[in-house]
Design a protein around this nucleic acid. Structure first.
Ligand SMILES: [Mn+2]
Ligand SMILES: [Mn+2]
Ligand SMILES: [Zn+2]
Ligand SMILES: [Zn+2]
Lengths: 142, 142
DNA sequence: ATCTACATTATAATAATTCTAAACTATTGA
DNA sequence: TCAATAGTTTAGAATTATTATAATGTAGAT
C-alpha cells in the first residue's frame, strides 16, 4: 500500500464525497504497509490519538459502513459482542487468538482450498470462511 | 434425542440445581428429534408460546450461559448483531442463509476435513469452523 | 456567489445484554 | 423434619454498542 495514495480519487470513483473526515479515515486505514483488523473503538482511538482528529462517533459508524458497502472494508463476525472490520477485502481465512482477542490473517498456503460438496437449492454461495480459534497452550480453555 | 430424558440427572451431574425454569428450558431445547439453532429471542418465544412458561429474561440469559459453560450449548458467531446458540455441541460447520437468517448444519460429508498448515507459536487450536454464506440466486447480494 | 444534495454533528433513542438486590427454593445435615 | 445455607429467580435499573434525528455545515455544480 503506497504512501500518498490518491484517496480523493478513490472516494470519487464510488460516489463518496471526499470530505475532511473521510480523508482522515482513509489515511488511518489505508496509508500503511499492511492491512489490519479493527473495531470501531480501535478506529476512534487511532483517529484521536495518532491523528489528533476528533470525528463524531456517528460519522465514524457512517463512514465505516459506507466504506463497507463500497467494498473498501469487510466486516468479520467472530464475537457476537463486537464488530471487527478488515482492510483486507480479499477472500481469506482467520486465526482468532482467544487470549488477546486478536485476529490474524491466514495466507493462501495456510489452509487448503475448501471443497463444498453440498448445495442449498436455489441458493448460491457468497463466501466460504474458516475461523480457527487458538489459545494459550497452558490454560483452561472453553 | 429420546423423550423423557432425565434432565434432573443431567443437571445434577454438572452441579446445576434442577429448578422448574431449568427443567422447562431443557424440555424446550432437548426434548426433540433434531438439534437446532436459536437466538435468545427465539427461545423466549418458544417458552412463552409453546410451553406457556413465563421465565424472566435474566434467567433465560443466565441459564443459556450456564448451559453453554457446561457444554450443553454452543454459541455460534455469524452476525455481530445477534447471538446464535446451537443444541448440537459437536464440532460441525454451517451454512448461513442470508435471506432468511437461518443457520443450517453441515454433515461430515458436506465439507472435506480442513487441513491447517500453519500454527501460531505457543497456541493450540481450540476449534476450526467453516461458515458458508448463501443467498438467493436471483438477487443483488453484497 | 448561489444552490442543492450530501455529510457531519450532538444528542436522543433503541436494542441486546448484564447488573443489582430482594425474594425465593433446593439441598444439607442437625 | 426443618431450619440454615448457598444457589436461583426476578423486576427493574444500568451498561454498551449501535442507529436515528434534526439542525448545521460543506462539496460540487451552475
Ligand atoms: Mn454492520
Ligand atoms: Mn456470550
Ligand atoms: Zn483479515
Ligand atoms: Zn449447528
Amino acid at each position: 500500500m503506497p504512501k500518498n495514495c490518491n484517496f480523493i480519487e478513490k472516494l470519487r470513483e464510488v460516489g463518496l464525497r471526499p470530505t475532511k473526515q473521510r480523508l482522515k479515515m482513509c489515511e488511518v486505514l489505508y496509508n500503511r504497509e499492511k492491512t489490519f483488523h479493527f473495531t470501531i473503538n480501535d478506529l476512534v482511538k487511532l483517529l484521536s490519538e495518532k491523528m489528533n482528529q476528533k470525528i463524531s462517533l456517528a460519522t465514524v459508524y457512517n463512514t465505516v459502513h459506507a466504506f463497507e458497502k463500497k467494498g473498501y472494508l469487510k466486516e468479520i463476525s467472530i464475537d457476537s459482542h463486537k464488530s471487527y472490520f478488515d482492510t483486507n477485502t480479499s477472500a481469506h481465512h482467520h486465526f482468532f487468538d482467544e487470549d488477546t482477542h486478536e485476529l490474524i490473517d491466514c495466507d493462501e498456503s495456510d489452509i487448503d482450498k475448501i471443497n463444498i460438496r453440498k448445495n442449498i437449492a436455489g441458493k448460491k454461495i457468497n463466501s466460504v470462511e474458516v475461523l480457527v480459534r487458538v489459545a494459550s497452550d497452558n490454560q483452561t480453555q472453553k
